[in-house]
């Protein structure tokens, strides 16, 4: 189960609306390398690992991703709060506005909706951990792309910089989880067998 603390993991206090930035940043809510995919990926994968340490990493990183999902939503919410109609039109936010008004909905920057096919839960912890490390790097690249776009907006820059730094830490922990997994395999089973399924080959 989960419990809720009524605060953000890192403060988000944006003073000026900017629909164009919101349109870009929403990709980290529901885009291909966004926080919704990240949290659902790890929290779905954890059931199939035979190793407690790895289940712990997946649970705790997946939980932190939910806090990041909330931070990204807060950024988009504050960037679009009380946005006047002229601003909506001027910044090209009208396409989003038609379907969602100023509600928060998981989509990529280009408007593609969130889809569970953006992540995998393969039931093989070696396969899953390689995906997880790649996912953290893809999210890190996306945050780097956002940082170039928001350089002149410190209120947006600081929380995005925090989120980027966490991708780096998560990549490190997943790398350690993969090492722990491989240490438990016999020398003939680095990649050939699923350690949670082909039990005889462990």
């Amino acid at each position: 189960m989960w419990s809720y603390e009524n605060r953000l993991q890192f403060p988000v206090n944006i003073k000026e609306c900017n629909a164009a930035l919101a349109q870009a940043i929403i990709s980290q809510y529901g885009g291909p390398d966004g926080e919704m995919g990240a949290s659902m990926r790890y929290l779905s994968q954890r059931y199939a690992t035979p190793y407690r340490e790895v289940a712990g990493v997946l649970t705790d990183v997946g939980t932190e991703e939910l806090a990041h999902l909330e931070m990204v939503a807060a950024i988009v919410y504050q960037l679009t709060k009380d946005l006047p109609m002229e601003e909506i039109k001027k910044h090209g936010f009208d396409k989003y506005y038609i379907d969602h008004t100023l509600g928060i909905w998981p989509q990529a920057a280009g408007g593609v909706p969130f889809n569970a096919n953006q992540f995998q839960s393969k039931g093989d912890i070696i396969t899953d951990l390689f995906e997880d490390m790649a996912a953290e790097q893809k999210a890190r690249t996306t945050y780097d792309n956002i940082l170039r776009l928001v350089r002149d907006y410190p209120d947006v820059y600081e929380p995005i910089k925090f989120l980027r730094a966490r991708e780096v830490v998560h990549f490190q922990r997943f790398g350690e989880a993969l090492r722990i997994t491989q240490d438990k395999l016999n020398s003939k089973n680095y990649y050939a067998f699923n350690p949670g399924f082909d039990t005889a080959s462990n």
């Binding site: 953000l8 909330e70 939503a73 504050q78």
Partner: peptide
């Protein structure tokens, strides 16, 4: 009077 987490301080 209780702020919501995502409202921000501004």
């Amino acid at each position: 009077n209780t702020p919501l987490a995502w409202e921000g301080g501004c």
